[in-house]
């Protein structure tokens, strides 16, 4: 009789142990990265990453073509100059050196809307996320170094961009796919919904052609310099790396 008692207890503990460990494993799974995400978010990730992959492959194609053109140019100055001009064109879009035109979205904010500089930062961030290629706020181009902030005097608070005061109405111009840009701001629970809670309704207009101004002045860097890694052995190790790719 007593032995049976032990057997039962042992069996019960064994089962409990297994159940408990199963339970812990299940919970552990839930705590790590992607597995925690909901299906629609994972789908959004796949979509975003696919379009990024596509853009990267275009970029690789571009770069390969440019490398070939550059090699062919040899010491032909005319060819070299035109190659570099093409490259500069692209870089100028990023650095804000030139005035740009293209389809896009304008966002107009008037004096009476309860909108703070932080809202402008969020709108600009959403526009980049929605694929904007260039953005300006009134007469100021937004670049990597642009500070969006505020300034105040005795009776007013002003929005500032690049340390310049922005007068009302504040007009944000973004070049890109107009429909995508609009969607980026108006998705349910997005920034427009958020602003509506505070009674702010910026006016969105899709445009076939918008103009984004060039930056006013070249930023001066006082602390930053180009970093050149010491590449003594890299030239010798590169052919080996190439061979490996071919062998694969």
């Amino acid at each position: 009789m007593k032995r049976k008692w032990y057997l039962t207890i042992t069996a019960v503990f064994l089962v409990m142990g297994i159940l408990l460990s199963l339970q812990f494993r299940a919970q552990e799974n839930f705590a790590s990265g992607l597995t925690m995400q909901r299906t629609e978010n994972l789908i959004a990730m796949v979509r975003d990453l696919s379009s990024k992959r596509q853009n990267l492959s275009f970029e690789i194609l571009d770069l390969t073509e440019r490398l070939t053109a550059q090699k062919q140019a040899e010491r032909d100055d005319k060819q070299l100059v035109s190659n570099i001009a093409n490259e500069m064109n692209k870089l100028n879009i990023i650095t804000g050196a030139t005035e740009l035109i293209g389809p896009g979205l304008t966002i107009t904010i008037d004096r009476y809307m309860p909108i703070l500089y932080i809202d402008i930062i969020n709108i600009v961030n959403e526009l980049w996320a929605a694929g904007a290629e260039a953005i300006s706020i009134n007469d100021q181009r937004v670049t990597a170094n642009s500070a969006i902030f505020y300034a105040e005097n005795s009776n007013n608070v002003f929005l500032t961009v690049n340390n310049h005061t922005i007068d009302y109405p504040v007009v944000i111009m973004a070049i890109g796919d107009a429909a995508n840009l609009e969607k980026g701001l108006t998705i349910p629970g997005g920034i427009m919904d958020n602003l509506a809670l505070f009674g702010a309704y910026p006016v969105l207009e899709k445009k076939d052609e918008t103009t984004v101004v060039a930056r006013n002045d070249t930023p001066h860097f006082y602390f930053l310099k180009e970093y050149k890694p010491e590449d003594t052995s890299s030239s010798e190790s590169k052919p080996a790396a190439n061979n490996q790719i071919h062998n694969d």
Binding site: K52, E59, I93, I94, E99, P103, A134
Partner: peptide, 11 residues
């Protein structure tokens, strides 16, 4: 990353 621009053109 990429620097692919489809919409912006130099004025």
């Amino acid at each position: 990353g990429d620097l692919q621009f489809k919409y912006a053109q130099t004025k």
